[in-house]
Amino acid sequence: MYPPLTILGDTLTWLVENQQSVIEQTIQHLNVSLTSVGIALVLWVPLGLFLHEHDEFAPPVIGTAGMILTLPSLALLPLLIPIVGIGVAPAVVALVLYSALPMIRNTYTGLEEVDESMVRAGRGLGMTDRELLFKVKIPMALPVIFAGIRQAAVLVIGITTIAAFFGAGGLGESIFAGIRLDFPRQVLGATIVVSVIAIATDYGLLAVQRALPGGSEAT
């Protein structure tokens, strides 16, 4: 057993001594996370828009996305390996799938919840469906959509850690190696870095979201 202060000191020492690899792993971690969030954005936000126009598909699609989120990553990743191979690819696929629920659901509900009176005013003043979507609904829903993107990003940064177990790289490498070698300072050091990235992302995106008109109410 370690006294807490000792382990904290050991951890800091480990971080300083292994700067180089920590920085490399951080970059790799962010690379995997950002790629996944980027792809997810391009897929899921438009899907949310589609569901808004075609309500009848919303329950099954959002239900499926919710189900995916309950699959443990340690089970999903090995299932993907035979399909897309080892390395970054299965990690990105899994992370994109995990992003589906927050992004689709928030885009959909954000658009659905736009105040009916604004939609009616827009339509009554002669907006086409397209103008209504881009000039009224999307801007009004933006804080809620953005909140979904933020939730997905934080989720992805966390799960990227697990993907290292299957060869995706990133800070998870140090964590799993530390567990294998029974080297707590390494586990803790890498974990702290992941947490800092996740928290910084959360706050950074929250600040952006708050700056959007009407953004302070969305969570």
């Binding site: 827009g122 003043l125 002669g126 907006m127 009004m140």
Partner: peptide
């Protein structure tokens, strides 16, 4: 669409666009 753009409309709930400035609202 032409019909509506040629008819002014004040809806019961006012329905101003909350994300637009007053100038943008008026000149929609």
């Amino acid at each position: 669409i032409d019909l509506r753009r040629n008819i002014g409309y004040v809806i019961q709930e006012i329905g101003l666009f909350e994300h637009m400035t007053i100038a943008e609202n008026i000149s929609i």
